[in-house]
Nucleic acid binder design. Structure first.
Length: 514
RNA sequence: GGCGGAGUAGCUCAGUCGGUAGAGCAACGGAAUCAUAAUCCGUGGGUCGGGGGUUCGAGUCCCUCCUCCGCUACCA
C-alpha cells in the first residue's frame, strides 16, 4: 500500500486513574467511525488507542489500594480495553505507557531532544499545596493561598526543561502554513492566541515520585507526563525504529482526535517536541466538545456521570453511536437527554430509516417472489433518486475528511427522506394491481438506494447497516465503498430472506405498543 | 482586564458577495394504508439581544450598549 492510501488516527491515551465515562467513549467512538469509514473506502487504516499509566496520582492510588503500581495499572487499564470491546471499537492496537516498547520509545525521543540541546537541567519552582497535591502559579494565588483556600509553600526541585520558548515563532508559522492543523476554527484561534502570548520552557521531569519512565542518564528523575504520554502516538507505529514499515507508512498521523481540555498539549507541546527532534508533526489535531447531562454540567460531585455501557444497555449500541455523532456538530458541546436520545432513536433510526427498509423489503418479499426484482426502463423520478444515492459517497468523503459527522448523517437522511417520498409518490402497492412491471422497477430502485444507504451507514451504525445488507443478500466482501454505484448494483433474481426490523423503537416503560 | 465566539420561530440551530427571514423537532389540519401506529402533504405576522449609523434597501456592513460562553501555561 502506498503512503497516500494510509490513514492513521489516534484517540488520546486515557489516564487509568479515571473511571471510563462518556467522554472517553465519545472520543474513541469518533475515531472508530472515522476508521471504519476509511477502511470501507479502501484506505489502509491504523486506529490507535490506549492508556496512560504513569504519574504520582497512580503511584498514590496504587499505594492506597495496597497494590504494586504495575498490578494496579494492569487492573485499571483493563477497564478501558473492556470499554473498547463493549462499544465495538475497531482499534488496531491498544498501547500502554508501561509497555517496554513505549519506555524505549520515550527514552529515545528524550535522547534525541537532549542531543539537540532542546533539554536542559534547571529548577522547577512554584507554590505547592500539600493538601491539594498541586502546584500553583503566582497568578493562581488568592491572598497568598491556593484558589481552593489551602495553604501553599514555596517549593523548588531540580527539573529538566524543554526549550519550548524557542519554538514560538516556528509554531506560529506552522499554524499559518497549515490552516487545517487545528480544528475547529475557534479552537485554532485560541491556540494561536495562546502561543502569541508567549511560551515559557516546559518542565518535563520530576524527582518527587518514582512511577514514571526514568530519564536517561539521570535516574533521580522520571519523566513528567508531557513527553511520556504524547510520545505514544509514534511508539504505536514503531518508533524509535523510523525505518519500521508502520512508521514509514503511517507517520505523520492524519488526525489526533482529542477532547478540548487537552488540545494545547497536542497542538503546542507535541508539535514542538517533534520539530525539535526533527520529526514531522501530525497533520491535524481535532478537539471535540463536552457533553452535559439533561442540561447540567457533568461532575463527580453532582454524581451525574454518564456511563456509556449503561447507555448502550438501555438504548442499544447503534442508537448511542448514532445519537452521539448526529445530535451535535462535532467540535461543539452537546447535551445528552433521554428525550433527545429517544427522539433520534425513534424518529430518525426507527421511523425514517428502519421503516423505509421494512416497507420496501416487505413489498419485495410479498410481491416479487422474495427476490430482487427485475427493473424495466427508468423514469426521471427513478434516475433522480438513484443519482442522489450515487452522489452520497463524495459528499460523505468531504464530511468525514473534516470530521463533520453530523453533516454526513444529514446528507444520508436527506436521501432517506427522498426515498420515503418516492415510495409515497410511486405507491408501489397500487402498482401491484395496475402495473406490476412498473412496481418491480420502483422496488428495484428503492432496494438499490437502500443498499447505498446501508453501505454508507456502516461506519456509524455498523450493526443495523450490516443487518440491512444481510437482508439484501449483499456479500460480506461487497460492502466496501468500491461496490457503490451501478457496477455493484443488486442482481435481479437474487433470493431475499423475509425482512426483520433493524432499528427498534424505544418504548417507555409501562407504555407498551398499542 | 486582554483575545475569541455567540445572542434568529416554543426547543435546537442554518442563513453564502447586503435585496423585503429558513430547516429539523414539537403543535395543529389533511392524505394515504406498503410499513416498526411508521410515511407523505399543508399550516410559522418570529421587534433576526437594545440603540444609533451607512445604503434605494441590513440578521447580513460600521459605532455603541447589554447578556452568555470559551481561552488567558504545566488540572490527560
Amino acid at each position: 500500500m502506498s503512503r497516500a492510501n494510509a490513514y492513521y488516527i489516534t484517540s488520546p491515551i486515557y489516564y487509568v486513574n479515571d473511571a471510563p465515562h462518556i467522554g472517553h467513549a465519545y472520543t474513541s467512538l469518533a475515531c472508530d467511525a472515522l476508521a471504519r469509514f476509511m477502511r470501507l473506502d479502501g484506505r489502509e487504516v491504523k486506529f490507535l488507542t490506549g492508556t496512560d499509566e504513569h504519574g504520582q496520582k497512580v503511584e498514590k492510588a496504587a499505594s492506597a489500594a495496597g497494590e504494586a503500581p504495575q498490578a494496579f495499572v494492569e487492573r485499571m487499564s483493563r477497564r478501558f480495553s473492556r470499554l473498547s470491546d463493549q462499544m465495538g471499537f475497531t482499534n488496531d492496537d491498544f498501547i500502554r505507557t508501561t509497555e517496554q516498547r513505549h519506555v524505549a520509545s520515550v527514552q529515545r525521543l528524550w535522547r534525541e531532544l537532549a542531543a539537540r540541546d532542546q533539554i536542559y537541567l534547571g529548577v522547577y519552582a512554584g507554590w505547592y499545596s500539600v493538601r491539594d497535591e498541586a502546584f500553583y502559579t503566582e497568578s493562581d494565588l488568592v491572598d497568598g493561598m491556593a484558589p481552593t483556600g489551602a495553604p501553599v509553600e514555596w517549593v523548588e526541585e531540580p527539573s529538566y526543561f524543554f526549550r519550548l520558548s524557542a519554538w514560538q515563532d516556528r509554531l506560529l508559522e506552522h499554524y499559518e502554513n497549515n490552516p487545517d492543523f487545528i480544528a475547529p476554527e475557534t479552537r485554532r484561534n485560541e491556540v494561536i492566541s495562546f502561543v502569541k502570548g508567549g511560551l515559557v520552557d516546559l518542565s518535563v521531569s520530576r524527582t518527587s515520585f518514582r512511577w514514571g519512565v526514568p530519564v536517561p542518564d539521570d535516574p533521580d528523575h522520571v519523566m513528567y507526563v508531557w513527553i511520556d504520554a504524547l510520545t505514544n502516538y509514534i511508539t504505536g507505529v514503531g518508533y524509535p525504529d523510523t525505518a519500521h514499515p508502520e512508521y514509514r507508512r503511517f507517520w505523520p498521523a492524519d488526525v489526533h482526535l482529542v477532547g478540548k481540555d487537552i488540545l494545547r498539549f497536542h497542538a503546542v507541546y507535541w508539535p514542538a517536541f517533534l520539530m525539535a527532534a526533527e520529526l514531522p508533526p501530525p497533520k491535524r489535531v481535532f478537539a471535540h466538545g463536552w457533553w452535559t447531562n439533561e442540561g447540567r454540567k457533568i461532575s463527580k460531585s453532582l454524581g451525574n456521570i454518564i456511563d456509556p455501557v449503561a447507555l448502550v444497555e438501555r438504548y442499544g449500541l447503534d442508537q448511542v453511536r448514532y445519537f452521539l455523532l448526529r445530535e451535535v456538530p462535532f467540535g461543539n458541546d452537546g447535551d445528552f437527554s433521554h428525550r433527545a436520545m429517544v427522539s433520534r432513536m425513534n424518529d430518525d433510526l426507527a421511523n425514517d430509516f428502519g421503516n423505509l427498509v421494512q416497507r420496501v423489503l416487505s413489498m419485495v418479499n410479498r410481491n416479487c417472489d422474495a427476490r430482487v426484482p427485475e427493473p424495466g426502463a427508468l423514469e426521471d423520478a427513478d434516475e433522480k433518486l438513484l443519482a442522489a444515492a450515487h452522489a452520497l459517497l463524495d459528499e460523505l468523503r468531504d464530511s468525514f475528511a473534516r470530521q463533520s459527522f453530523h453533516t454526513a448523517l444529514i446528507r444520508l437522511w436527506e436521501v432517506i427522506g427522498a426515498a420515503n417520498r418516492y415510495v409515497d409518490e410511486q405507491a408501489p402497492w397500487a402498482l401491484n394491481k395496475t402495473d406490476p412491471a412498473r412496481m418491480r422497477t420502483v422496488l428495484y430502485v428503492l432496494a438499490e438506494t437502500i443498499r447505498h444507504l446501508a453501505v454508507l451507514a456502516q461506519p456509524i451504525t455498523p450493526g443495523g447497516a450490516g443487518r440491512i445488507l444481510d437482508q439484501l443478500a449483499v456479500d460480506e466482501g461487497a460492502r466496501g465503498f468500491a461496490s457503490l454505484g451501478p457496477d455493484g448494483a443488486l442482481v435481479p433474481g437474487t433470493p431475499l430472506a423475509k425482512p426483520e426490523g433493524v432499528f427498534p423503537r424505544y418504548v417507555e416503560a409501562g407504555q407498551g405498543a398499542r
